[in-house]
Design a binder for these strands. Structure first.
Lengths: 292, 292
DNA sequence: CCTCAATGTAGTAATATTATAAAAATAATG
DNA sequence: CATTATTTTTATAATATTACTACATTGAGG
């Protein structure tokens, strides 16, 4: 199962919509019948769909083939996948009239959508590169300001498990001092949504000049990205919408997860022992069920 | 499009995985054949799948029916939807042999899967309830320890925008002091993955005794949940797997997003003005493209 | 050794595809 | 502008494929 989600990513429903104009009379009837109620369409037999569209069965079959399916059943499978993939609320904005159930769903679904987008955009090469740097690090520092401060803190927690010195800073002054005091073998991970925070750019530059490795989790091609040794580009979803949450934090956290996992994996066996010890030490602070 | 993703949300792949143990010999063969390569399974005919699983066709048919499908084609459709819904790596654990691309994808996809699961499990009523409490709060405090500290910090950042006093604490001592000093009108949001952290349970109890509202973002039916005024239950995915990241943080953050959005929405119009002012004030610290 | 559940065999029904013919649309010619 | 030739589109009907059902067989547990 090397590369699961490959070519098959294109959404049939969208393709139908797009090609609707260029279809001839009968085929358009079929398209419209499907678009009108795609979910039921997946349950129709070719005869049923032909009846619904008021055309003959072979027409439906030809229609399917024209969308590069091998036949009707194959087409139905693709359609089914499209429906499932189709994030229902994508693009739909949150408004004051929404019920709790509605906007809660919209938030979760839009978060999911941006995660999926990020997945497709992530450079595995850059990730591998970043992981290599982190493994060899004498010391790791995570820098995040404002909304990225929690992300940096989270990273610190995660990396604390590997017995390298890890710190996180959310204060520009401290960051500057640490950057100034850094040197070869040190890794500094700068986290910034925009990649345009003045202070952060300065700080990254200082760290680089001192020979430290700077890994950037930020917008690709941004001023900050330019200063980094390795850039983990996170194409941020538009922030235009008033009510929409910043999904970027979530993506950044997930990138942190990937880095931490990568380091764990590469470190190999004897290291797991150490990791398990930390996990066990936490158990003591918890209440067991029989103690309630 | 009131409620798009209705009943049909359950993931067939997961159900197969779950019921794997309880199946008899032949049916398990079918299950394994499907799980081994679900994508191709959607393209198989019943005969082909029967051959792949080394069983007879009716066995496959019975297998499908046992998953409450009307027959094989119907089952295939559901399977196709499950795959598209995004969990190709469901059940598949991250291992040392994985390439960066593989485990990165697995992490993102498993995060997506748990978000989706959380969405289905979230109680809208509890959310609405929590939002009501937050709106009326004189003061809001977010408590999170260890891995939940970043979540609390993030919440503080988010709620800072509403002009109510907001603080976050990651230190048990401080939390205890704040809880002790709290009273009616105060809202304390306790964030805990397990809901079994001793300190946290004590602290929640103290806050309650002083008349404060305690909102819990934690495992439902946990000791901590019992002490809360409102519980936002987050059924946590198993933490058994060594390499798997804790997706719970991500879910918690998303819950925070929902709460913050809810508060914004309910606060209404004149409040947007205030929100926009904060956003604008941040722009000054950023580098514009023409300044590079 | 019997009973009941599990599985397979073979026949039947359903569904989809192909080949081909009819109809409609377009182009060409007088 | 009408009329025929040509191409494209669509439908009918036959065929092939695929899925389902009823029944027979096997095998496990009592």
């Amino acid at each position: 199962m090397a590369t699961t989600h490959s070519h098959q990513d294109e959404n049939v429903l969208e393709v139908i919509q797009a090609r609707l104009e260029s279809l001839n009379k009968s085929e358009r009837k079929v398209a419209e019948a499907i678009l009108q109620d795609p979910t039921s369409a997946t349950r129709y037999s070719i005869a049923a769909l032909a009846r619904a569209a008021d055309v003959s069965e072979p027409t439906v079959n030809r229609f399917c083939r024209s969308f590069s399916a091998t036949g009707f059943p194959d087409f139905k499978i693709r359609l089914a996948q499209s429906i499932a993939t189709g994030t229902p609320y994508v693009g739909q904005n949150i408004g004051p009239e929404d019920t709790v159930a509605e906007f809660a769903d919209k938030i979760v679904l839009s978060t999911i959508a941006s995660l999926d987008k990020a997945r497709q955009a992530l450079s595995y090469k850059a990730l591998a590169n970043a992981i290599d740097h982190l493994i060899q690090a004498k010391q790791i520092n995570f820098f995040g300001m404002g909304g990225s401060a929690p992300v940096a803190l989270d990273a610190q927690h995660k990396f604390f498990r590997f017995n390298i010195p890890v710190m996180s800073y959310d204060d520009a002054l401290m960051q500057r001092m640490v950057a100034a005091g850094s040197g070869t073998g040190d890794v500094i991970v700068v986290i910034s949504y925009t990649g345009r925070t003045r202070e952060m750019i300065d700080i990254a530059l200082i760290a680089r000049e001192n020979g430290a490795t700077v890994i950037g989790i930020t917008t690709p091609d941004s001023p900050l990205a330019d200063k980094c040794t390795v850039v983990l580009g996170v194409t941020a979803p538009e922030d235009t919408e008033v009510y929409m949450p910043m999904s970027s934090r979530i993506i950044h956290l997930t990138v942190i997860d990937i880095l931490a996992t990568g380091v764990t994996l590469k470190r190999g066996k004897d290291f797991h022992h150490h990791l398990k010890k930390i996990k066990d030490s936490l158990k003591a602070t918890r209440l067991r069920s029989d103690e309630l």
